[in-house]
């Protein structure tokens, strides 16, 4: 299995994924303009500068979340059927390895590469904040949760790639993510304020399709430790149940649910690869 892991890492490097890494590093460093710009735009107080730093952390974490997920999708969506179609696996599958070793080897290789990227990006964000004279080492505590994003999208894309071609697997993964994002960011407020049952059910369904909202809550929980109260909160009006629906509290089961979700997709991908014909 570790030969497959090494091969996947080499393949990722060959595909010049590190060029993306460098671009994101530059983008994260580029965020350093925010605190100063914020301070100058809103009266020049130190408090505004701190708000700018906080925004920088929020944007930075969002950039890392987004691009690590994109990287995972790019590397996973063509890892099985795509490689079968291109003929890469025709000489590897007859080797004395189990198909589950191939699947998990690919998964582990992509995850290691993506985690290394996300860690380097977080280091850059931390450094960019540090040179503002505003050290925030706490942001490292959000990293484990941020890593769940590429894990989630990568696992989903890899599972879909066990029976779908590269473009369709990517498309489905992105579509599921888009649905979950749309439901959480747009349908949730509408469903809450206007109390539309069908929309509430769609929001509930979206959390089953992809637990983006659950993950957002978990990240928010960590980021809240860094960001002062008042930022990223639900508007302070509305009934209690509306507020609860808008910003549900983090529950212990949330982590269990995300873990179970990942496990289910891993099992789905493994089972399909195990039973499918490869030619």
């Amino acid at each position: 299995m570790f030969t497959i892991v090494r091969l996947t890492l080499k393949e990722a490097i060959r595909r010049r994924a590190f060029l993306g890494t460098i671009i994101i590093l530059i983008a994260l460093y580029g965020l350093t303009f925010l605190p100063r710009a914020f301070k100058e735009a809103f009266g020049g107080s130190e408090q505004q500068f701190t708000v700018g730093v906080n925004l920088m952390i929020l944007f930075g974490v969002d950039i890392i979340k987004f691009f690590s997920a994109v990287l995972a999708i790019l590397l996973c969506a063509g890892a099985i059927t795509g490689e079968i179609e291109r003929g890469y696996l025709s000489a590897i599958l007859p080797r004395p390895i189990h198909r589950w070793e191939l699947f998990l080897g690919k998964w582990l290789g992509v995850m290691l590469f993506t985690y290394a990227n996300a860690t380097v990006w977080t280091a850059m964000l931390w450094f960019s904040v540090l040179i503002q004279g505003n050290p925030r080492s706490e942001m490292w505590s959000a990293l484990p949760i941020v890593l769940v994003y590429p894990t989630l999208y990568g696992t989903l894309a890899l599972a879909l790639s066990s029976f779908l071609g590269t473009s369709i697997a990517s498309m489905f993964t992105v579509a599921m993510g888009a649905f979950a994002y749309f439901a959480d960011h747009f349908l949730r407020p509408i469903a809450a304020f206007f109390d539309v049952r069908i929309l509430q059910q769609m929001v509930w369904l979206s959390e089953w399709v992809l637990p983006m909202a659950v993950l957002k809550r978990l990240v928010q929980d960590r980021v809240d430790a860094i960001i002062p109260p008042g930022m990223g909160d639900a508007p302070p009006f509305g009934r209690e149940e509306v507020l609860l629906f808008l910003k549900p509290p983090v529950e212990t089961l949330d982590t269990v649910y995300v873990g179970a979700y990942l496990l289910v997709w891993l099992v789905v991908g493994l089972t399909i690869l195990q039973i499918r014909d490869v030619q």
């Binding site: 080499k10 060959r14 291109r86 003929g87 890469y88 025709s90 000489a91 080797r95 004395p96 390895i97």
Partner: peptide, 19 residues
């Protein structure tokens, strides 16, 4: 797996890791 251990195969259509 026991059979594959003793088997070598050259596929007709292949794409090797050419890097």
């Amino acid at each position: 797996v026991q059979a594959k251990r003793k088997l070598g195969f050259l596929p007709e259509k292949f794409q090797f890791h050419d890097f």
